[in-house]
């Protein structure tokens, strides 16, 4: 669990309810422990991105993802994994071949809740908080969910992203899906 800033405890609680152990990554030394998957939580992408760089975590984590580490980014995590952010010159891990739009729904008054299907799974709850969406994907990216014609969940090999926050509702679908990518229980 990347625990630099944001809603990481919520993800930890979801994993723990599913019987999966997790630990927090706040510094380089934490990467020495062995782990099967990485979650990059929601929060502010500018804050997490800056801390990734300054704490010397950016390059090591980028390498791990390129080497195949299963990685799941929600909201800010999606932005950190995006190769391009349309309305922001900054990019961070830039390992996933997607173009994202930051704060795509506007300010807090634009935050919303909805239910939509994800892949072959019928409706699941989705909470969007000052959320991004994905504008473009390359051919190797699988689109998992759309809301109002916008892509809000996608997968490229070992990388999974959602613009919404599955950790804020009591539905384990997306976390189960990620645990499968990590090689199951």
């Amino acid at each position: 669990m990347l625990a630099l800033q944001g809603a990481f405890i919520e993800h930890e609680e979801m994993l723990s309810k599913l019987g999966v152990e997790s630990f927090e990554i706040r510094q380089k030394n934490d990467l020495l422990r062995s782990f099967d998957g990485l979650i990059i939580p929601g929060g502010e992408s500018t804050v997490q991105g800056k801390l990734l760089k300054e704490l010397g975590l950016l390059e090591p984590i980028r390498q791990l993802i390129l080497e195949g580490l299963p990685t799941f980014g929600t909201c800010a995590g999606l932005l950190l994994l995006s190769k391009r952010i349309e309305n922001d010159a900054r990019s961070y891990l830039a390992t996933m071949d997607i173009t994202a739009v930051r704060n795509a729904y506007g300010r807090q008054l634009g935050s919303f809740y909805t239910e939509a299907s994800l892949g072959t799974i019928d409706k699941i709850p989705m909470t969007f908080i000052r959320a991004p969406y994905i504008k473009e994907v390359s051919d190797s990216v699988e689109i998992l969910a759309t809301v109002d014609g916008k892509i809000i969940a996608a997968r490229q090999g070992n990388q999974l992203v959602t613009a919404f926050h599955p950790e804020l509702n009591d539905d384990f679908t997306v976390h189960r899906y990620f645990i499968d990518i990590c090689g199951g229980e």
């Binding site: 809603a7 405890i9 919520e10 929060g43 809740y113 909470t127 908080i129 000052r130 926050h165």
Partner: peptide, 13 residues
């Protein structure tokens, strides 16, 4: 709920 959720995103900040 959405408003409480935004505060959750600010945590650790």
């Amino acid at each position: 709920e959405l408003n409480k959720n935004l505060a959750q995103m600010l945590k650790g900040g």
